[in-house]
């Protein structure tokens, strides 16, 4: 029975009806069984706009229960408006405890970052994905990209990396950096900075990726190898900063740059607010 009240009309627990949740769970199971493979699913209209996390929200809504503790981040921070809005949504429709602490969360929905605090067994990281197809910008046709995945024909992806080095002297791709999952499928890690790519490799947490507008779900099960594509003589590298965080002094975390006065003075702080606060 519908048991949660939104704006005067009855909605089911966690917004989606149970049939839809079952359908999404089946897609998730398939995605877990074939790591990195994009599973089409019957994405629903959500009360939040496409491109604002509808894929991640549907995944979260399908797996969340009253025992869960939910953390939502956007750009690494819990207090960015979109993160606040999604957290509020679930607090309201799923009657679930929320947290900003990475360690306390059982489900972490994220846009554009992986938390700095290492994840552990039993945690689920839900990514919001705008364009699930890593080959899309190289080949616009779905029928063709599907064939390329099916046949593991990935030369074109390597061509794009080659071209980047030829033009810039290095692989200039900085976020949404393509990875090879379990030695089989090339996957888009969603627009996380490449800084976060190493955290995906053999992570003890389950990674679920939801693309609402494109209606695809894919997954990386715990402890699965995830390799960032590169060349032997141009190995994958992550961003580094000469500065350290102005608040907690971290030299290891991803730093956001802020302009703090009209003279253009810069300040660097951790993008992961929970990590930063826990160190202060």
């Amino acid at each position: 029975m519908p048991d949660t009240d939104i704006q005067g009309s009855a909605y089911n627990y966690a917004y989606l009806d149970e049939q839809t949740k079952r359908m999404i769970r089946r897609a998730i199971l398939k995605a877990v069984a074939v790591p990195g493979y994009q599973v089409p699913f019957g994405g629903r209209e959500m009360p939040l706009p496409y491109g604002w996390g509808t894929g991640g929200i549907q995944v979260t809504a399908a797996i969340i229960g009253r025992d869960d503790t939910l953390k939502v981040i956007d750009q690494g921070a819990d207090d960015t408006t979109n993160a606040v809005s999604i957290r509020r949504f679930f607090a309201r429709v799923a009657d679930v405890a929320t947290t900003t602490r990475t360690e306390e969360a059982t489900i972490i929905q994220t846009r554009h970052r992986v938390p700095e605090t290492p994840l552990r067994d039993g945690q689920i990281l839900v990514f919001q994905v705008p364009i699930p197809e890593p080959l899309r910008m190289l080949e616009p046709r779905e029928t063709e990209t599907r064939t390329l995945h099916a046949l593991s024909e990935y030369g074109v992806m390597q061509v794009s990396l080659y071209e980047s080095i030829a033009r810039h002297g290095r692989i200039a791709k900085t976020y949404n950096y393509p990875v090879m999952v379990n030695g089989r499928y090339i996957m888009s890690p969603s627009p996380i900075p490449k800084f976060d790519n190493p955290k995906l490799d053999r992570s003890p947490a389950l990674q679920l990726y939801g693309a609402g507008r494109e209606k695809r779900i894919y997954a990386v099960p715990p402890h699965t190898p995830v390799k960032s594509l590169d060349f032997d003589d141009h190995p994958f590298e992550i961003e580094t900063w000469t500065e350290s965080c102005a608040l907690c002094g971290s030299k290891e975390s991803f730093l956001d740059e802020m302009i703090v006065d009209d003279a253009g003075k810069r300040l660097f702080v951790c993008s992961d607010t929970d990590y930063c606060e826990s160190r202060r």
Binding site: V159, F231, D232
Partner: peptide, 26 residues
């Protein structure tokens, strides 16, 4: 040809498609 990428990438594509991963050698 792939008109959008360099001549080098055009020639190198077949090598990369069968696993060449050394930029300098390609």
């Amino acid at each position: 040809l792939r008109m959008g990428v360099s001549a080098g990438a055009n020639i190198g594509e077949r090598l990369m498609a069968v696993g060449a991963r050394h930029y300098g050698e390609i």
